[in-house]
Amino acid sequence: MFRYLLKRVMWMIPMLIGISLISFFIMHLAPGDITSTEAAFDPKSSEESRQKLRELYHLDKPVIVQYGLWLERMAHLDFGHSFASHQKPVFWAETDKEGNHTNGMIQEALPVTLLMNVLGLVITLSLAIPLGVLAARRSHQWQDRAITLFNFIGFSIPGFWLSLLVMYWLGVLHPWFPISGLHSLSYDQLDAWGKFKDLCMHLFMPVLIPAVTGLASVTLFVKNGMLDVLGQDYVMTARAKGLSEHLVVYRHALRNALLPLITLIGLSIPGLIGGSVIAETIFAIPGMGKLFYEAVMMRDFPVVMGILTIGSALTLVGNLVADVAYAWADPRLRKGIMPT
């Protein structure tokens, strides 16, 4: 087991280098750099100053040299500094000699996105599993059709449109929830319970809306898995034994039906750190999606590379976790992938 894990982890290093090399080149294929943004097109600014900036950030050097410099820094886990945002550190916080503390950009954006996505995933799963089971048990009956219709609608609605409607409904018509932002302006004056409540109120819409509209695929996944299993011989055996329908469905069938879900969750781990640009922009939440989108638009290469690197590392870790968890949950696989 340990050797297998070690081998998988060691393999991740060359893969990460390969991914970063490809990302770096693709990023540089897009024309322009930090000096060709719309703000830089100001007749008061001079071409000499733009050239100086390109030299400062080594943008005048060949891409392969720039990649070498980046890789050298990454070897010390130094994600570098942003070009566009006052040279803020990309990932880790830094303290200068006067003791001033500057938070890293990813460090600031990641917790929000992670919190939103984990909450969203929990909500999605806790709704999708019962719905999927119900749809499978009542296959071709009205419950199944209603769930399918609901999923179909949720899948087809543009998220931003639904968000705006709900914002109008629950924020303007009935001002029950804050419309946008993550903290109230009076957040610092609140006590711990008030802060918690404030955060919950702000997260309600941005978490719930994507979670509900994202239900469709998971529900379908659970339903299909369940339908497969319900047709198996051992389920018939269980029924023949005279077990209650509840025991048959929830103890015998569901456990097997949920196995493919492990893969699905494993694969969604990298997704947890990638925020949705549209949701974050509409709800004015400073998360990873907005950070990445703005970095791409500003050609802020260190930030783009930082996020891509973390994303690809997590994708690899997610695959590994999914495989290991699957093996743990399914003895058939455990025997198959781990020869003594």
Partner: peptide, 14 residues
């Protein structure tokens, strides 16, 4: 900081 003009407008309405 509210990037989306529609969200800004909703905030203005509220």
């Amino acid at each position: 900081i509210i990037p989306d003009p529609a969200a800004q407008f909703l905030e203005l309405m509220a």
